[in-house]
């Protein structure tokens, strides 16, 4: 507590956090503004006392102090917002560039190997196919990364267009289970539907958005679980909502990381150690898209045992 107060008074340290010069630093400008206000009030007080009655002089000084304080606070707050936004953009660019550079450098090396002048003997057809497949995979990784980043940008700019309609969550999930079974043949995906009524049940939301939410949640389940483990998708009605969930037997989320799991660019410590390629935006995008569809999203997790992520959407009556 005391340390935090002392830290907030250390203007040099505060300014270093924004990575801006002293004259662009909100805290320093606030200090300067305070000094100007004091000088202005003192000068007004002297002049007012010389020319008007003391009561009126006091009123003028109070009014001036109030106006100057409000203007000063507004200016400094605006500076603060701009400085924070600049810092967040620069962190954003640094993360993007790293995540785009990884597949780009992989493609560069794979092309290097395939170029005829770099081959000592001709590569066998199977070897060439291996490198071409790797190039395609890396290209897809870049497309996914760019799509995710565009989603983040649209979400932050409130620029997401909703096209809600009634659709079957079961049909959408069947397609996703087939797709993920092909993408991750070493995991065992299954779709669990408790009663026939659920098959005909429809929800009202933007189908394309929900397809992306399902993709993000199922991709996480597959990425953070080991080969041979099972991943179960379940759909159950819960009052006026259809609850979709995916349960894995993966690494789980440490309790200290759970409150931040839906934050943009946040990755749990064990997740980063298990799977190095993640960007930390899948759950942020999933939560934002579910919220836009007036749904609910959540999870439960036990480290070392697995996680269950769920979302619920309103049922069409």
């Amino acid at each position: 507590m005391y340390m935090r107060i002392l830290d907030s008074l250390n203007i040099k340290k505060q300014c270093a956090q924004y990575r801006v010069g002293l004259w662009q630093c909100p805290q320093f400008l606030f200090l300067i503004m305070g000094m100007i206000i004091i000088v202005a009030i003192a000068a007004t007080n002297t002049l007012a006392n010389r020319y008007v009655a003391p009561e009126i002089a006091a009123l003028i000084v109070l009014a001036l102090a109030g106006v100057l304080f409000v203007i000063g606070h507004m200016i400094v707050s605006a500076f603060d917002r701009v400085a924070r936004s600049a810092r967040s953009k620069s962190e954003f660019i640094s993360i993007i560039s790293h995540h785009l550079r990884a597949p780009l450098s992989a493609i560069k090396w794979q092309i290097d190997v395939l170029l005829p002048q770099n081959q000592s003997g001709r590569l066998q057809a199977s070897e060439s196919a291996k490198y071409l497949n790797a190039i395609r995979e890396n290209n897809e990784r870049m497309i996914f990364a760019v799509n995710d980043l565009l989603d983040v940008n649209r979400i932050e700019d409130n620029d997401i267009v909703l096209c809600p309609s009634a659709f079957s969550l079961v049909e959408l999930s069947r397609g996703a289970v087939i797709k993920f079974s092909q993408l991750y043949p070493s995991r065992s995906f299954s779709l669990h539907i408790e009663s026939e009524d659920i098959t005909t049940m429809q929800v009202y939301a933007d189908e394309e958005h929900i397809r992306r939410v399902i993709q993000h949640l199922m991709d996480n389940a597959a990425c953070y679980s080991s080969e041979g483990s099972s991943i179960m998708v379940r759909i159950v009605p819960e009052e006026a909502f259809a609850k979709w969930s995916v349960a894995d037997e993966g690494i789980g989320i440490p309790p200290q990381d759970q409150p931040r799991i839906f934050e943009k660019f946040f990755r749990a410590q064990n997740a980063a150690r298990h799977q190095t390629g993640g960007l930390g935006i899948g759950l942020f995008v999933a939560k934002s898209l579910v919220k836009l569809s007036r749904g609910k999203i959540g999870f439960s997790s036990a480290p070392g045992k697995g996680s269950t992520f769920w979302f619920a959407l309103p049922i069409v009556k």
Binding site: W109, Q110, N118, Y131
Partner: peptide, 17 residues
């Protein structure tokens, strides 16, 4: 290196040399 494709390309080139 955790990326299999990078290890493959690297191994191919350096073994050639």
């Amino acid at each position: 290196e955790d990326e299999e494709a990078l290890r493959g390309a690297f191994g191919e080139t350096f073994q050639r040399d």
